[in-house]
Design a binder for these strands. Structure first.
Lengths: 152, 152
DNA sequence: TATTGTTATACTCTATAACTATA
DNA sequence: TATAGTTATAGAGTATAACAATA
């Protein structure tokens, strides 16, 4: 059972793990933010590229993935569309709905960014021996599986 | 040796680790963003609270920690000051400089947020057995040590 | 001259509220 | 009526450029 937020922080080694998760999160997000900035994108635009990599989504669904209001999406998608990264298409079955998808340029940029992220995180990866990498990946996967709130 | 960003993504299990790091980063940042929002704070304000937890910093140094321009800090700190979370004080040795520090309210809020983050990430932690937690924490620590660009 | 910090300006991100069109 | 999406509006976050005060 978790401590309630009223209590002081748990002093067992749980907090060391949480600290480590927080630090690795800032490190990873920092790398992503840097790469995004180099391509003149926000972190959110980067996420759009990642989310739409292998699917097309309606505005409302994309908003849900991102945890944003649909009105926010309108502007976001409009800017991305102006830059030629995404396209909009009317849904055949529901005339109210709009599907968003990556253009060829968007696909290319997405792949490039994934490669750059791998480069950026290379020091982290190479600090570990192959067996340790596998171990870390498996532990993270196990921990992540316990949670529902994540998008791919 | 890292792949250059021109190459396609490396297909070895390095990419599985990077994916896991990315997912855990979004999960952790998501938890932080949610908590921040509940307290009407941005993620950046949350970071300010964390960074100033155990030190007082000059505007320029705080900006460096955050990776922001000092002009950005002026507004950020002004808003936090209005809310009574931080204070400003003139540096005795350098009349140009301003030191920023947490008020008592800021300290309290920082502690509360840390506890809430622990709660929020409890499902992740409890998905692992104690030995696995230690293992994950150690692997993350080792990986993080390899990198310079992080603040506490 | 160089550095510290603020102010002015502009753009992006975000939410809320009001709206149109379709279901 | 309810849902999908856009537009209008407003506030926060961010950067660049110009500035004042101090080093």
């Amino acid at each position: 059972m978790a401590s309630t937020a009223q209590d002081p922080a748990p002093s067992d080694d749980t907090s060391a793990l949480i600290d480590a998760l927080g630090q690795s999160a800032f490190l990873t997000m920092g790398a992503m933010t840097k790469i995004a900035a180099e391509h003149d994108l926000s972190l959110t635009q980067l996420r759009v590229l990642a989310i739409l990599r292998d699917r097309r989504l309606r505005m409302t669904d994309l908003a849900a993935y991102l945890g944003l209001e649909k009105s926010t999406l309108s502007g976001l998608v409009a800017r991305a569309e102006t830059r030629g990264l995404v396209g909009r298409a009317a849904d055949r079955s529901d005339k109210r709905a709009v599907e968003v998808f990556l253009t060829e340029d968007g696909q290319l940029l997405g792949k490039r960014i994934a490669a750059e992220l791998a480069d950026q995180l290379a020091p982290v990866v190479s600090a570990l021996r192959p067996a340790e990498r596998r171990s870390l990946q498996e532990l993270l996967a196990k921990a992540l599986d316990a949670t529902v709130q994540f998008e791919g």
